[in-house]
């Protein structure tokens, strides 16, 4: 456990020192400022538009950090030979992977907290009444980002190309939101496209975690336990794919 903590803390500190979070925070602040101007077009629904725009931005910025971090991290560790020293220690590759995953997850979490603090301050300033649904929306966003991070790690370790990893992760991310629409399109395509349907079983079902899009519709508490179960299982399997590649990787 201690090794996991050490690796995770190291990844977070590296991200903080690289100013990655600072850049994302500045980007989020600028976008929120622009968004505030745009949401004024919604007149009486300004706070709703600001809420939706802000949550969307928080998700995209946090996602960007996760996908970028996941795509370059292990490649950089291998190129700089940092991995040599770490793996020469009595630490297994599974633990190494998990420790780094936790560190990147923490980094994404810090970014999420900082950008949402900015967003919340702006909303409250505009007279929005806080509701716990906001926190559930953030939780849904974070679990989606963890899924994206695990996919990116798996793809990055197999593809050895950061760009390919980011591209494929973004594609799976989009498909994960677009599953009902894609399913409908394939259905309209008749028998010629039916062979593509099994492919739809691989992308994550992100609409299940997309609470920010349905928070006005869903009464009571969201199924947080089911969220954790699904996100944990899905991300865990992608980490297994990542480990399968890492265990054979030569440093």
């Amino acid at each position: 456990m201690r090794a996991l903590y050490i690796l995770a803390k190291d990844s977070l500190e590296e991200a903080l020192s690289s100013r990655l979070i600072l850049v994302s925070l500045v980007a989020a602040a600028v976008l929120l400022y622009l968004g505030e101007a745009v949401s004024a077009l919604a007149a009486e629904e300004e706070t709703r538009a600001l809420l939706d725009l802000g949550l969307g931005l928080i998700e995209l910025v946090t996602l960007g950090i996760a996908i970028f971090g996941g795509a370059v991290f292990f490649l950089r560790e291998g190129e700089t030979k940092r991995a040599d020293l770490i793996l020469s220690r009595p630490i297994g590759r599974a633990r190494y992977l998990l420790g780094r995953f936790l560190g990147l997850a923490l980094t994404a979490g810090v970014s999420l907290l900082l950008t949402s603090a900015l967003h919340l301050a702006l909303l409250l300033f505009k007279g929005w009444l806080f509701t716990p649904a906001y926190l559930y929306a953030l939780l849904g966003i974070y679990l989606k980002v963890l899924i994206a991070l695990s996919m990116t790690l798996g793809i990055a370790l197999w593809s050895t190309s950061a760009l390919a990893a980011m591209g494929f992760s973004a594609l799976l991310w989009s498909l994960g939101h677009f599953l009902p629409e894609v399913g409908e399109l394939l259905g309209r395509g008749g028998t010629s496209l039916v062979w593509l349907k099994p492919v739809l079983w691989i992308p994550p079902n992100l609409s299940f975690l997309n609470y920010r899009d349905v928070m006005s519709l869903a009464p009571g508490f969201p199924p947080v336990g089911a969220w954790f179960a699904y996100a944990g299982a899905y991300a865990g399997l992608w980490l297994l794919i990542a480990w399968d590649r890492l265990r054979l990787k030569e440093f």
Binding site: D10, T80, R82, L85, P90, G92, R95
Partner: peptide, 18 residues
């Protein structure tokens, strides 16, 4: 991992977080 517990390694160009 247990095998490496008693070994120490200095690579030709050791890389550390800057």
């Amino acid at each position: 991992a247990q095998a490496r517990r008693k070994a120490g390694y200095l690579p030709e160009v050791p890389a550390f977080s800057q």
